[in-house]
Design a binder for these strands. Structure first.
Lengths: 405, 405
DNA sequence: GTTAATTTGTTGCAGCACACAACATATAGA
DNA sequence: TCTATATGTTGTGTGCTGCAACAAATTAAC
């Protein structure tokens, strides 16, 4: 009857009744917990693993032993001592356990080999004259796999993940639409599974970028974030809600690029008017600069140089609209963090305080209070790392059960 | 190495590494699974529970026995036979295990007593001349509790949930802002815990309505939905993503009422222009009718009557804008279902095909293909039932551990 | 009306997982 | 060299679920 301290509700429990679990699933969950910690942090001492999992020393010992036997982790002697007491051996995720990561784009197909821990072992790239078809992409993968052969031989590949610049049905891996590649309803993942023999998974590139940033980048430790990436082809987005990527029913969620931002704006290629990606747009930024700067550095310089100029006017216009859009997303998702990549990151760095002020002005104050707006941390291999995460997911969820026998 | 069948990725696994679990948590999870199934379905045979949980007959027997001993469930003889074989006893969630549900509103404070299974045992209402303050609300609760005394005596109350027409910080139960009540930063849940001795929880009314519809109403069995409720005070919203309510970092997420829908629209009380709730608006609908109809039925009739009239023009304008907004939400959440309540439900029923066509035209086709737009199923006690869910959550998550000793 | 088939509850046992405690081990510091 | 501290290791205990055999209660068939 007495409620002494105020109880906190469980953060975000599922509403639907779950199925039961047994002992075996406990083991699976704990193995998953250990390997996932190692995958995210690279290496940890067994003592640290014990603290993070909350399990008993002896249990962690047994779990690490089982993972070691499955060649998913290995131990090394504790490096330099970290105080009194018996030193705890370092446990490493086995980097040789790897995933292939594919990124078909308008002018090239890129294939990477990413090891546990998110390390890129190797990367090969095949430029194409025109955007590749799905079939061509699959053929190119076979060719690129040969080039990767030396690296591949040293690895145990668990699957292949694809970052697609388009809309992907997440459960089947079918690309519903990739406008810049001119793909329609391409069963990419099944085709790749067929061609390579590896389990294949496909996802939208921006959502995979968000995942990479969440696991290894600027979103590390954050459980609610909105990721926006600006490129020449538009604005891609990904959302993390309560620590989980927002996929929606079929995998088409978090498409924020076509959010209405200005009813009087230009017509968008999607048919509507005043979409975010039509108003906050790299081409229009470059047009204001009179030419197309090659690098992000060039653009950054051009923005600084042009105080009072047409450039500055355009930068301000886009920043204000971006701020307006972000304020809308804050009302929708209430994130702790908004991550900006691509030219949106450049825009942010040009006038960070203007963007922050704009967002703060339009947001509900308590939601804006706990909000950070930051630039992404990961570089050009973001998409490959994110794509690899897709392929790693089964292994991380069920380390022993998903092992290749 | 061989990937015969195409593997499906785990739907929406958390990205962060989890903590470990032990035997005790397995038991807790399975007890939770059983009581949650019963809470959602009312009563189930033990055989049906066995099927739904996937656990062994003997295990389910033990779980039900433990819940029975804790007086959370009780068994009755199987009613009419359901085929050959030994009849399986019906297990019922104990309705005497109940939660208080509070709904402070501009003109009244309502307090209900809701039993497991979502049954409303009793309801008392205290009209107020003006919107009550938080302190007044708490005082009124004590008074209303006396009125509920006869019902209360027969129940075991596990806590009190509050549906607040405003923004609530979900983890602390502090009402950040309730404009129509003129509340600012009111620590409502702690105040109620202090005053009543019950664990108290508070949430936004629309989100709790969404939860009620998901558990007991039109959203039953759906894991991704958008709920929109139109009332005189605006448009409230709630989102279910991957079976979980979208709360965001602090609990302020899913505020869809102020989504931009028309840059040239009227100024909203929030300071911006052309928000959804300013354009799709009950007052403007009633203004077009020349008077304020009392009931939803009156309004429905007025809409039908006015073919070609100013009413129809306004209904069409609002429907088209609502469709535009829903199309935006589909791009953001990719739900299976959009649920419309309040006057939005009336609008839908006035011209369902117009709204559907509008949404389909503006949506990305594959996302629209699997989409349903429906009216809510639950009636006036929606908010009380949703508020009670908040208070039940701890019990449902940890049935034995959260028992009152 | 008796018997067979079917489904389900019940019970005892086996397998497995984790916690715990005691002990062994390896470091730092006195 | 000895003590304090932290950690790995091992054996034991408790708890949970699955399984198989049996008992019970119903329907269907002869």
């Amino acid at each position: 009857m007495a409620g002494k301290r105020h109880p906190r509700p469980p953060a975000s429990a599922p509403l639907r009744a779950d199925v039961g679990t047994s002992n075996a699933q406990t083991r699976r969950h704990n193995l998953s917990s250990v390997i996932t910690h190692l995958h995210h942090s690279g290496s940890l001492t067994r003592a640290e693993l014990t603290r993070r999992t909350g399990l008993n020393r002896s249990t962690v010992g047994a779990l690490v032993g089982e993972l070691e036997q499955a060649r998913l982790v290995h131990e090394t002697a504790a490096p330099e001592s970290a105080g009194v007491g018996r030193p705890s051996p370092l446990v490493h995720a086995n980097r040789q356990v790897a995933a292939l990561a594919l990124n078909p784009d308008v002018d090239a197909v890129e294939l990477g080999l990413v090891g546990l821990g998110g390390v890129l072992h190797a990367k090969v790239r095949h430029p194409t004259a025109t955007a590749p078809t799905a079939a061509e992409t699959v053929r190119l993968v076979s060719k690129l796999l040969d080039e990767l052969e030396p690296s591949l031989r040293q690895c145990n590949v668990v699957g292949i993940g694809v970052a697609v610049p388009g809309l992907v049905q997440s459960d089947t891996g079918v690309v519903a639409l990739a406008p810049h590649l001119d793909w329609h309803d391409e069963p990419l993942a099944p085709m790749l599974t067929e061609a390579t023999g590896y389990p294949a998974f496909a996802g939208n590139d921006a959502k995979l970028g968000m995942i990479a940033e969440t696991v290894f980048g600027a979103g590390s430790g954050v459980s609610d974030l909105v990721y926006l990436n600006g490129s020449a082809s538009g604005i891609g987005a990904g959302v993390l809600a309560a620590g989980r990527p927002l996929w929606g029913a079929r995998g088409y969620a978090a498409e924020l690029g076509h959010t209405l931002i200005n009813s009087d704006g230009r017509r968008c290629h999607c048919g509507r008017r005043g979409c975010l990606e039509t108003e906050v747009n790299l081409h229009r930024l470059q047009a204001a600069m009179g030419r197309a700067p090659l690098s992000a550095e060039d653009m950054q310089r051009a923005m600084r140089a042009g105080a009072g100029s047409a450039i500055k006017v355009e930068v301000r216009r886009q920043l204000d609209l971006l701020g307006q859009a972000i304020a809308g997303f804050v009302a929708i998702f209430n994130p702790e963090l908004v991550l900006l990549g691509g030219f949106l990151g450049t825009l942010l760095d040009a006038m960070p305080s203007r963007l922050e002020a704009c967002v703060a002005r339009l947001c509900f104050a308590p939601a804006a209070a706990g909000l950070q707006i930051r630039r992404v941390a990961l570089g050009e291999n973001l998409l490959l790392i994110g794509a690899a995460e897709l392929a790693f997911q089964a292994l991380l969820t069920d380390p022993i059960g998903s092992i290749d026998r």
